[in-house]
Amino acid sequence: MFCKKQTSKLEGSSLWLGTAGILFIVLTGIFAPWIAPHDPLAVDASNRLASPGLVYPFGTDHLGRCVLSRIIYGIRVTVISAFCIMLITVAISIPIALLAGYIRGNTDNIIMRMIDGMLAVPDFVLTIAIVGMLGPSFINTIIAIVMVRWADYVRFIRSLVIKEGQEDYILYARMTGNSHIRILSRYILPQILSRVLVFAALDLGRIVLLIAGLSFLGVGVQPPTPEWGVMLQDATGYFQVAPHVMVFPGIAVVLFVLVCQLVSDQFNEPVTKEG
């Protein structure tokens, strides 16, 4: 009994810590102009590769730009764009999954075979291929990640729709003459929406890693945009002489993924069971 109470307390504290961490990071990005000590794009050749100090707490990069300011502004590109990708993917996936899970038949078979084909290729490799065809840019990065991630969302949401469609109240709704659109919008969607949002929130860390990874390889966000992956890519040639230019952006990526993981640990098991 004592162990169970201790475990529940630890889980609750992890959830609050993770949620607080995500809110802190997002708010820092929103208020970046008031928090960042310097202009993230300002070049100062006289201070290039300066070590961390009072004026530049995280030091400067190879062009004399403030690393801390670029990390703070990078939240706007990396994290906030991850939220946008998540919302766009959910908006696209819900109608497709509702159609596949409710109507079933040939429509479901066609959609699921497409999804099986996409999921057969690792998402990072497929994202690189799509960005390579579209061309490296911030907008194309968003498009590519949405095109890759929607398959996982559709498969998960479809399983929820199938399960919900077998409930007695759905059968009663059909018998009383409700249209299919009314059943989907009034009965099924409200029941599954909270679980869909939880699943999407758990995907944030993965999306951030995709954005940073593409930028690091040079096919995502392009310099001089302050983005964590771009900063890591710029720092590769200077790591031995000025390790801070790579260490601090790397820590930023790890911290965000960590706080997402703290939140996901609380929901991952129930979501997996229902998927």
Results as ranks from 00 to 15, higher is better:
S46T: 15
I142V: 15
I111M: 10
L204T: 09
P57E: 08
I22N: 07
F156I: 11
G135Q: 08
L202P: 07
S8D: 13
P190V: 08
I207L: 12
G237M: 05
S14H: 05
S137F: 05
V148T: 13
P243Y: 01
T127G: 14
R182M: 13
C84E: 04
G53N: 14
L184R: 01
E269R: 06
L17R: 00
I30W: 02
Q266K: 11
R195L: 02
E269K: 12
L134M: 14
M133H: 01
R174Y: 14
I110C: 09
N47I: 03
I22Y: 02
G218L: 12
Y172P: 01
K163Y: 10
V247I: 15
L197Y: 11
I25C: 04
S264Q: 04
P136C: 02
W34K: 05
V131Q: 08
P37R: 02
R155Y: 03
Y102K: 04
V219M: 12
A252Y: 07
G218D: 01
E269W: 00
N178R: 07
D234V: 02
Y153W: 06
V146P: 05
V241Q: 10
K5S: 14
L17K: 00
V90M: 12
N140P: 10
L210V: 03
I103H: 00
L262M: 15
G250Y: 04
T272M: 13
R195Y: 00
L27P: 02
R195E: 10
I80W: 02
N106I: 14
V146T: 05
L197F: 15
S13M: 15
T225A: 14
G53I: 01
I207G: 04
M147T: 04
W150D: 10
A201N: 08
G12D: 09
A50I: 03
K4A: 15
S46K: 09
F24L: 15
V55F: 10
Y153D: 06
V148D: 06
Q240M: 15
G275L: 08
F156C: 03
I92P: 01
L171T: 13
I75N: 00
H38R: 13
V125C: 11
F248R: 08
D123T: 11
E269N: 14
V67T: 12
V196A: 06
I30M: 06
F267Y: 14
N109F: 05
P37D: 12
V146A: 07
K273R: 11
I88N: 07
L99T: 09
S264C: 02
I71T: 02
R76H: 01
R155Q: 13
V257R: 00
L41M: 12
V247N: 00
K273F: 07
